[in-house]
Design a protein around this nucleic acid. Structure first.
Lengths: 195, 195
DNA sequence: GTCTATAGTACGATAGAC
DNA sequence: GTCTATCGTACTATAGAC
C-alpha cells in the first residue's frame, strides 16, 4: 500500500482515459494540459506516454470508442413498425446522451481538434449513425405512415432536437427523464406525421 | 503608403475583432494565440493590447455584441398571429445563423471559456432570447391554436432543431435557404399543433 | 498607435534512472 | 511502470523607444 512507484497498468490506463474524458469535456481539448491530466490521475506527466503516443491519439481514441459504443447501441434496435422504431430511437438517443454526457460533448465539440485523417474517421462513424436514423424515416415514408418533405433534413432536425436535451436537462429537475422522453417523442411524432 | 508604423485606430480595431472572431470560430478560443491574431491583422502581438485589455475581454466583447445583435433582431418581430410570428422566428433564426456563422458558433461553443461573471452575462442574454421564443408559444397555447405539452421544452426543442441547420447547410448545396426554411417551418408547425 | 524586446510562465514530449 | 530532469518551444502580457 501507499507505495510511490510501481506497476499499475490495469488501473492507470483506464484512469488516464477517464480523467482525459472529463477534463476535455469540461475545459476543452486545447485548454487541458497533459500535466493536468497526470495530476488528476496521480502520476507524473511523463508516465502518461506509456498509455498514449501523444495527446492527439488520446483524444481520437476517446472519440472513436464513444462512436463504437453509440453504433453498437443503435444496432440493437428491436424490430417493429416505423413508429415503434422511431420512438425507440428517441428514447435511446436521449437516454444514452444523458448517461454519457462527457463523451457526447467531446464528440461534437472537438471534431475540429482532430487531425484531418482522424476527423474523417469520426465523421464517417457519425454519418453511419445518421443513416441508421434516416433509414427508419425512409421506411415509414415508403409505408405511408410518415409524411416527410425531406428525410435527410428531418433526420438532422430530429438528431439536433434530441441533442439539445443535454444542454438544459438536470437530474432531479422539474421533469423526470421518462417525462422528457415522452414529450420529445410527442413532438417528433407530430413533426413526421401528416398535418 | 506602405509605412511600417503609424496610427490606424479606425482600421485596426475592427480588423482585430474580425480576425479574432474568425480564428476563435475555426480553432477554438483556447487554441488561438494572440500572436496568431496579430499576424492575421498585420501587426505585432503587443499592438493588440491597445484594443483589448486581454484575451478574455476580446472573447467576451465578441460574444456580448453578437447577443446584442441577435436580440435587436428578434425585438423587431412584426405583429401577427402566433402561427405567423412562429414562422417569422423560424425564418429569422435560420437566416441570421447562416449569415453569422462564426458569431453563432462562438456563442455556443465558448461559454465555458468565459470567466464566471462574464458567463453569467451571456447566459442571461441567451435566456432572454429563449424567453422571446417561448412567449410566442405560450400565446398560441392560450389562444388554443397550439397544443404543446410543455412550452419550455418545446422552446428548447425548436431552438436546438434550428441551430442544427448550421452544422450541415452549405451554400450552393442541394437545397436553397428558402426551401430549408419552408421545410423546417413545416416540421415546427406540425410539432406544435395538435396531432 | 505600433514597434522591439523581454519577463515570467507553461507547454508537449523524451531520456535515463530505478 | 513510474519517476526526475530537461530540451526546445510557445504563450500572455508589459515596458519603453519612436
Amino acid at each position: 500500500m501507499a507505495r510511490k512507484a510501481g506497476s499499475h497498468a490495469e488501473i492507470t490506463g483506464p484512469k488516464v482515459r477517464e480523467a482525459a474524458l472529463r477534463l476535455f469535456a469540461q475545459y476543452g481539448f486545447a485548454a487541458v494540459s497533459m500535466r493536468q491530466i497526470a495530476r488528476e490521475v496521480g502520476v507524473q506527466a511523463g508516465a502518461l506516454y506509456t498509455y498514449t503516443t501523444d495527446k492527439q491519439a488520446l483524444l481520437f481514441d476517446l472519440m472513436h470508442d464513444h462512436m463504437g459504443d453509440v453504433l453498437a447501441g443503435i444496432a440493437a434496435m428491436p424490430d417493429g413498425s416505423p413508429g415503434e422504431r422511431l420512438e425507440w430511437i428517441v428514447r435511446y438517443h436521449i437516454g444514452y446522451n444523458l448517461t454519457h454526457k462527457d463523451g457526447v460533448f467531446i464528440n461534437y465539440m472537438e471534431l475540429r481538434n482532430l487531425e484531418p485523417e482522424n476527423r474523417k474517421v469520426i465523421s464517417a462513424l457519425r454519418r453511419r449513425y445518421e443513416d441508421a436514423v434516416e433509414a427508419v424515416l425512409v421506411d415509414g415514408q415508403e409505408k405511408g405512415v410518415f409524411q416527410i418533405p425531406d428525410t435527410r433534413l428531418a433526420t438532422m432536425a430530429v438528431i439536433a432536437m434530441l441533442n439539445g436535451v443535454n444542454t438544459w436537462y438536470r437530474e432531479g429537475g422539474r421533469l423526470s427523464q421518462d417525462r422528457v422522453e415522452r414529450i420529445y417523442w410527442n413532438m417528433v411524432r407530430r413533426a413526421v406525421k401528416g398535418a
